[in-house]
Simulated scan of single mutants.
Amino acid sequence: MKPALREQILTILAAIPEGRVTTYGRIAAMTDGATPRLVARALRELPEGHALPWFRVITASRRLAEHPGAPEQRQRLLAEGVPFDTRGRVTAEALWP
């Protein structure tokens, strides 16, 4: 991945407000050529101890992606007041932008 594209992704990630979420696809659409998979890759490659809100990124179906950090992701989102519906999806009102 080109460093400039990674920087765009991380800049967008840093801008997601507390209590809101966005999707891999929405982040990709805000860049100069990233795909949702590239966004996911950039998040997987974040260094240990970073302060970026990776947990505010969800799938297009408004669910948490299946990964080892999903339980922590859900806890962090709930702590920020992000609502989930009865089917386990984040409510549409929480989507940003």
Rank of each mutant, 00 (worst) to 15 (best):
E48I: 09
W54K: 13
A60R: 15
L52S: 09
D85R: 03
T91Y: 02
P68Q: 11
L77G: 03
I16P: 06
L46Y: 04
L46N: 03
L43D: 06
T23N: 05
R76V: 00
T35N: 07
R37P: 01
A70L: 03
E18L: 10
L52F: 12
G33R: 00
A42V: 12
R44Q: 14
I27L: 07
L46A: 07
F55Q: 14
L52G: 05
A60N: 15
T59Y: 04
A79G: 01
V39H: 05
T35H: 09
E80N: 05
R87F: 06
R62C: 06
K2I: 12
R56E: 12
R37D: 08
A51T: 15
G25W: 05
E7S: 15
Q8C: 10
R6A: 15
P68A: 10
A94I: 10
R87H: 11
R37K: 08
V39S: 06
W96T: 05
P83A: 08
G19H: 09
I27Q: 02
I9A: 11
A42H: 03
A60I: 11
R6M: 12
A40K: 02
A94D: 07
R74F: 09
R37M: 02
P3A: 06
E80L: 01
P83R: 06
P97A: 15
D85E: 00
E93Y: 08
A29H: 09
L10H: 13
R56Q: 15
P71Y: 01
T86G: 01
A70P: 11
G25Q: 04
E93A: 11
A65C: 07
E45N: 14
V57Y: 07
A65Y: 14
I9E: 05
P53T: 09
P97I: 13
R20V: 09
I27A: 10
T23L: 04
V21N: 06
T86D: 02
A79P: 00
S61N: 15
E72M: 01
E80A: 01
E66F: 06
G19K: 11
R56Y: 08
Q75L: 03
V82F: 02
A29C: 05
G81M: 06
A40Y: 11
A4V: 11
R76Y: 03
G69N: 13
A42F: 03
L77H: 01
R76N: 02
T59M: 14
L13P: 08
A28M: 10
Q75G: 00
Y24P: 08
G33M: 00
L52E: 07
L5R: 14
T59P: 09
P83F: 00
G19T: 10
S61V: 07
P53E: 13
A94E: 08
M30R: 08
P36G: 05
T22A: 09
